[in-house]
Amino acid sequence: MMLGQGPDIGEMVLHHTADAWTIDLEPITTIHLPRWADTHLGPLTMNLSPTKHVVYLIVAAVLVFLTMYLAGRSLRRQRAGENAPKGFAAAMEGMVLFVRNDIAIANIGENGAKFAPLIMALFFFVLYSNLLGLLPWGASPTGNLAVTGALAILVFLTVEIAGMFKLGPKGYMATIFPHVPGMHGPGAVAFSVFMAPIEILGKLVKPFALAVRLFGNMTAGHFVILSLFGIIFLFGDIKGWNWAIGGMTAALVVGVMMLELIVAFLQAYVFALLSAVFIGLMQHEH
């Protein structure tokens, strides 16, 4: 196997997609992030020191906030002058309204406007996190299971807690112990109890799929791009072919990058859409 002798492409791929305690801005510099001691929360032990993904999460959040804040300010100014919104602000308004109307309200229903701020924040946060990975030196925090898992847990809690408020204790319990139409007596009770684990599993599978889908899509894209770059390091020293290999690989990477750009938008859309659908399903459960 070539891996043993040449540069370790596998190590390189994993190194660049995995979280780290450093931020590589090579060849300029490498920033070493501070390491804190472990935090004990009851039986849980975790390390809260910031990692590369934490930094990029914050960068994504700051960028989302700046974008939206500036767009809002610009829109307000344009409207104060009684002008139709134009340029960047109008584009942002269009995107925000799309997320609000066609993702949140269209899938949640009459309560959609109430959940719209959450869906909008999720969409743009995920989108910016996805896009950060496509920048030079960038990394996608959404290519980390902890991040996508945390967001999915948030969605899960929103779905269940909003469901409890909307359906009331009795209605909410019916989503765990389903009442089968046409069944009465002890048979129906037995069936409900029998179905409960399946219903609970169903509730948990949705956020799990949400987390794994986003993580998988982001990580896979980075794997593909980095692996394609690896071709250069593996075969670039073949005499007479190095330019051809370099050019072909670069073309392939550009193509995959384009694809990744679509995937970044698509996965943000899917994440927001499915969150809205899950909230809407729970809101309209009978």
Partner: peptide, 19 residues
């Protein structure tokens, strides 16, 4: 262990906080 499949509990808390 350097792996994208590793789940860092601290990062979950950070995600919640930042989001």
């Amino acid at each position: 262990p350097v792996s994208p499949f590793e789940v860092n509990g601290g990062l979950i808390i950070w995600t919640w906080f930042v989001f």
